[in-house]
Design a protein around this nucleic acid. Structure first.
Lengths: 285, 285
DNA sequence: CAGTGGTCTAGACCACACT
DNA sequence: GTGTGGTCTAGACCACTGC
């Protein structure tokens, strides 16, 4: 008596059965807006998912809607259990998965928090380039040199990567990141123009934290995961000049697509990394 | 009353208290070999870990000792719960973590299995080079050309990577992997000579599955995780010839250290990847 | 059908953080 | 102390697999 089923004996819309163990019977129906209704908008078919997955979806929805903002605490487990009328253990399992995906951050004794790119611990979460020697902090944050920031129409490949139509407006940023004075990363960013109205070179240059934190704060766009394709290429003359290397120097070409909630692509990034004193670090398991 | 503590009121060695909830008292002491004793060999200090962590350690120990071999089913959760005298939920949580680390594989209705590099699904788990076009299977498995396989004394850097003393014996393998006839990967492998006695070029060439599966079957060495450092380099003349590219072509340099249980390094691999029709794929989260 | 892992609950207690 | 997440248990039932 625990799963949403089509053959649910409850007439009032195919919602989940109530998991009350000892008296093995159903719980009183809940207000529709309190649980996932297989209603408009959602995919109608797969409402077979376990309860905790539905809770997870609901929490995700609240994160997406901005009900809880990055860095803030979400309601406690007991509170959420009451709200969703499930046991604490079920809420717990939902939160466990969201924490494993780095969307939430649990802190014992304090609460559960919406993850952010601002936190010291996980700053530059998506940057895998590490110095060959010395600890990660000894190097300090990168210096940013914004070369260009403009609005233009998306080319075919940029549009495809961002799920736009070619010709749609995008913001393009070109910048160089330097570590301890050595220019090390040259990258281009493309962002959907719609969501990033008003992004300027000044904002990018002045913001003290990670760029993804700026995106969270100024545009409400939270990057949740990303995919990268890495190749080795030779620097052309222009690239070589910007990175202060000889033309033809082998560079790491890193193409990244970053996604918000619901696997919506929100950024395309093409970077060239010098790997003479840094390396791209990856953990496999 | 649930954690191992130094102030545990049980005299017979600092072992864990019994988690019996309703009558909040301790359970009868168990045979020493049944649970982690903070005995010789292990680090003595950190015996504060939760029960499920201890269970995890015990399961890990059985995996390590070869009590359950790759591909085999481990005892059911209830069975393990009885054996370790804990609740099924506690065993479950231990297995959950091991499954998340890809050491175990759960299959509903069938059991929990020791993960292996032989399985079709996760074959080439550690190889991140993907074809630019076409699905992963369309390409088929790589053709292996073993160029060399010899035993020699470890150089300083190889020894350091493998946790050996320089001068210790290692097996060195050089090979080329080709996809659809195109040589794409040139790599050197170094393996501790002790554990890989008898490894031959013929065995490497003839074995039909992934090399890591051969290591499991023939030498009982299970690679559990790995770390990679990636750089861009230019092919020298010899490398270029083997990979059928022009000298100076940019290549991905991938240095991998693969670990067995207990974070013991068991393989150093230095690969050069052509990225003209393939790319290194990485997921960030 | 029995056996396995998967879900859900309810309740107890522990560890940690703040006040 | 109160409130939070973290651990542990016991028991029920569901879903999948294979005999």
């Amino acid at each position: 008596m625990s799963y949403i089923r089509y053959d649910c004996p409850h007439p009032p819309s195919g919602r989940r059965l109530s998991p009350t163990p000892l008296p093995p019977c159903h719980r009183a129906p809940l207000p529709d807006d309190d649980l996932v209704a297989p209603a408009a908008g959602s995919a109608p078919a797969p409402s077979f998912s376990p309860l905790y997955q539905q809770i997870k979806t609901l929490i995700l929805r609240s994160l997406q809607s901005g009900e809880w903002k990055p860095g803030e605490a979400i309601p406690s487990e007991v509170e959420l259990a009451t709200r969703f009328r499930v046991s604490q253990g079920t809420v717990r399992k939902a939160i466990d998965e969201l924490a494993a995906e780095n969307l939430l951050l649990r802190r014992q004794g304090k609460g559960t928090f919406v993850a952010t790119h601002s936190e010291r611990q996980v700053q530059y979460r998506f940057l895998r380039l590490k110095p060959d020697l010395g600890d990660l902090d000894s190097e300090g944050p990168a210096q940013r040199h914004i070369i260009d920031c403009r609005r233009l129409r998306a080319s075919a490949d940029v549009a495809r990567a961002l799920g736009l139509r070619s010709g749609d407006m995008v913001v393009q940023v070109r910048r160089v990141l330097a570590f301890q004075g050595v220019p090390t990363i040259l990258e281009d960013l493309w962002l959907p123009g719609q969501a990033f109205k008003g992004l300027s070179a000044e904002a990018l240059a002045d913001y003290p934290g990670p760029t993804y934190a700026l995106f969270e704060e100024e545009f409400g766009v939270r990057m949740v995961r990303a995919e990268e394709r890495i190749r080795a290429v030779a620097a052309d003359a222009a690239q070589a000049a910007l990175l202060d290397v000889a033309a033809g120097t082998p560079l790491l070409s890193v193409e990244r697509i970053a996604y918000t909630y619901n696997d919506t692509p929100m950024e395309l990034r093409r970077g060239l990394y010098r790997t003479d004193s840094h390396h791209y670090h990856n953990e496999l398991s």
